[in-house]
Amino acid sequence: MERADGARVAALDSTLPREPDIPAWAPLLYQLQLLDFREKPEPLSLAIPDRIRIGNQKRERGNFYFQREEYSMAAQAYCMALDMLTTRTYESQSCAAEEEEEEVNDYRVKCLNNLAAAQLKLGQFDEALHTSRDVLFLDPQNVKALFRKGKLLSDRGEYEEAMETLKKALKLEPSTKAIHAELSKLVKRQAGENETQSWQAKPAQMFGENIAPFLTPPPKKKPFGISWKFLLGALVVALGSLVTSVVLTARN
């Protein structure tokens, strides 16, 4: 290739791969320039389809964080999605159509279920129970929410409500092994509690209201510290000493 000044330069073939000129361990410094920004849209000012589109984008971002085990970021993304997925409108706007409202509620159920899963990973058990109840308010037959609610209630010791919830989940999905396992665990917990309550009921019947000293079983009496073998040996030694003393006295 020839430049305007007549000098010749070699033309590079763009199809050839470029040799790496930056080492893999070299630190890189990027300089960014903000060109434009947009204010966060107010959900109530958007049309329902736009809310669904933006809400799903945020939900998918939460799924991305969840797969990376960044559960706190996932929970934040799900909450932002739920803020967007609403059918409430300004008074000047018309109410949402029934079909649109059902679609929004379906996406809200998905977000709430994902949020409950993230809360469980974060150890936020009370929040996860509250979120599962929100799911069941929108979809009373949601098996995932029923299972989470039943398991959390069982862990809290609320066995009666947990049993009803898990039975409902089992009726909807009889072949799910996780529900069977949780019901089995709950039955064992109930049996253990009933045994404890039946043991504590006897003192209450015998001693009336003043049963505080009798609620705990008395400590077991420890066996005597000296064994019978030791006592027998000591007795034999004592008798031997006595016989020896008698014999010596008789000889003298």
Rank of each mutant, 00 (worst) to 15 (best):
L115F: 02
Q190V: 06
T216F: 10
Q67D: 13
M73Y: 09
E99M: 02
I179F: 10
M206T: 04
D155R: 07
R108H: 11
D36T: 01
Q119P: 04
Q141R: 02
P223S: 04
K221T: 00
E99A: 11
L129A: 11
F66W: 10
L239R: 12
R3M: 15
Q57F: 07
L28R: 10
T216Q: 12
P174C: 05
F125K: 09
W25V: 03
T131G: 14
K168V: 00
P174D: 01
L138V: 01
G6V: 00
V247N: 13
K222W: 07
A97S: 15
I48G: 05
F125E: 09
A128C: 13
R108F: 14
Y65D: 05
T87C: 14
Q200M: 05
R61G: 08
Q31C: 03
E164G: 03
K220D: 04
L112S: 10
N63F: 09
S241T: 06
Q31N: 10
A47P: 15
T196D: 13
D21Y: 07
I22K: 14
D13K: 09
E60K: 15
F125S: 13
L34K: 15
R8F: 02
Q76H: 06
M80N: 15
G123F: 12
A77C: 02
E173N: 11
E60S: 09
S132K: 09
